[in-house]
Structures are given as C-alpha cells and as structure tokens.
C-alpha cells in the first residue's frame, strides 16, 4: 500500500506507567488513511491502554500523540457504562452524537439492523448491541474508526460477518480502522497491518509476514497447518472451527 505523507494519528515513543510498572514503553504507532491496523497481544499487554492514549482519554507519561487536523474519530468501546436506569431508545442513543435522523437511519441500515431504532437499549441482544455501537461509531462519518474488540459476545458466524462489514465500511467511508482483536484468524483476512503488542511493540507488518515472525511465534505459539495461531489464553470460540481462513487469500 502506498503511504500518504501524513499519518492520521501517530504515537511517538509513548511511555505509560502505573504504580511504577511500565504498561507501555517506547511505543511508536502510525495509522494512515484507508489502512486497517489490528492490535493484538496477550491479556494485560496494554492494548486498551494504548488505544485510550491515542483517543486522548489518558495522557502518556512520556512521548507524544499527533493527530491530523480536524480528525473525526468514531469509537466503539468494549462495553457501555449505560445501565437500565435511563429509558433510552436506539435512535436516541445515536442522536446523542448530534446527528440528524436521516444519518441515524442510514447508519443503522448499514450495520444491518434497520428496524431497531425504536427499541430500548436495555432490551437489545449482545449482537444487536455490538451493531448499534458500531452504528454510533460510523454515524458521524469518521476519518478513523477505533474499535475495541468489536465482535465481543457475537457468535462465530456473526463474527466473520462483522469483520467483513468493517472491511467494507473502510472503503465506503475512506477511513482508517484501528482495532483490538483476540480473534486472530478472522482478523487476518481483513487487515493490512498487524501490530503485536506486549508492553512494547514486538513486531508489526503484513499479516502474512508477521505470522512467521519469531517474536510473534514466541508470543502466540506455533502456527498450525491451517494458519491459525494457537493462543496462550483461551477464548470460548478459539477452536479450529469451519471459520478458519488461510492467510494467503489476497
């Protein structure tokens, strides 16, 4: 991929400490327009911390963050702090961004839940909630989509559909995507750059090249012959099911 001159968002030499322990150390990362960048790493590696620093929700102890001018970011957090005490419909939830009803309807249709607008947020299923949160992230037509484990709580068929949708949204909105994922084998097909994080950046590059990188193998174990990385931690749906993909699709 040709790199434009200015990255949309970049972090330079970021250090972040808590209680004298470095959660992130010397982290450099750049996100270009049109690029899908996936952040992977073991639990507690600092992935969410890095994303929160990039979003300006945390300030780093050292290093700096550069944003291109007038950058609009759409963010999908791991979960909402919303509870049932506020009666809130999906339409109103999306209207909190200040968007017009037409844009809201369009966003809901785009994430394949067009008829959900009048339902209460507290009554949504896990998969519907993920899609509504994605709709909120895209409703302002962002330059950069930041997704923190976007397929959480979605069944395995739904997961690959969602990743495909994210890939389509990238081209439609001509935006960049930064996402955190555990679901390595599903993400590989939809991503341009993989950054492997464990407090520092272990390795980064194309999914194909990175899956043979020694640093990657050390962190994630041996590749199986289907191209699925064996994980050091266990997720419910990490088995080699029918959804596995070969890394050499493109």
């Amino acid at each position: 991929m040709e790199l434009p001159l200015q990255p949309l968002l970049s972090a330079n030499n970021v250090l972040f400490q808590r209680n004298g322990k470095a959660i992130l150390d010397g982290v450099d990362i750049q996100i270009q327009r049109g690029e899908i960048l996936t952040l992977i790493g073991p639990n507690g590696a600092g992935k969410t911390t890095l994303v929160r620093i990039l979003l300006g929700l945390l300030s780093p102890d050292k290093g700096n963050i550069k944003r291109s001018k007038n950058l609009t970011i759409g963010y999908m957090p791991q979960k909402l702090s919303l509870d049932g005490s506020m009666p809130l419909t999906v339409d109103r939830f999306l209207a909190l961004t200040g968007s017009k009803p037409a844009a809201i309807g369009e966003a809901l249709a785009r994430v394949d839940v067009p008829a959900i607008g009048r339902q209460l947020m507290s009554k949504l299923s896990g998969g519907e909630l993920q899609r509504v949160m994605l709709a909120r992230a895209i409703v302002r037509k962002p330059d950069l989509l930041v997704l923190d484990e976007p397929v959480q709580g979605v069944d395995i068929t739904g997961q690959s559909k969602l990743y495909r949708l994210i890939g389509e949204l990238r081209s439609e909105l001509n935006c960049a995507v930064l996402m955190i994922s555990h679901d390595l084998h599903l993400v590989m097909a939809q991503t341009d750059t993989v950054v492997c994080l464990n407090h520092h950046i272990c390795c980064q590059g194309h999914p194909e090249s990175i899956s043979t990188d020694p640093a990657f193998l050390e962190l994630f174990g041996q590749q199986t012959d289907t191209g699925v990385a064996v994980y050091t931690h266990h997720h419910d749906h990490q088995h080699d099911s029918g959804e596995t993909r070969h890394p050499h699709q493109h």
């Binding site: 929160r52 979003l55 300006g56 929700l57 970011i73 759409g74 963010y75 957090p77 909402l80 702090s81 919303l82 506020m86 809130l88 939830f93 209207a95 909190l96 961004t97 200040g98 909120r136 302002r140 930041v146």
Partner: peptide
C-alpha cells in the same frame, strides 16, 4: 441537555465525540 445525556450514557464516547 444533549451533552449531559451523552456524558451519562458513556463518558469515554462523549469525550471522543
């Protein structure tokens, strides 16, 4: 009103927006 609601629903989202 709108900002207060946005904040109450999720402060991180409100900040990013």
């Amino acid at each position: 009103w709108r900002k207060l609601l946005a904040l109450t629903v999720d402060e991180d989202l409100a900040h990013v927006e």
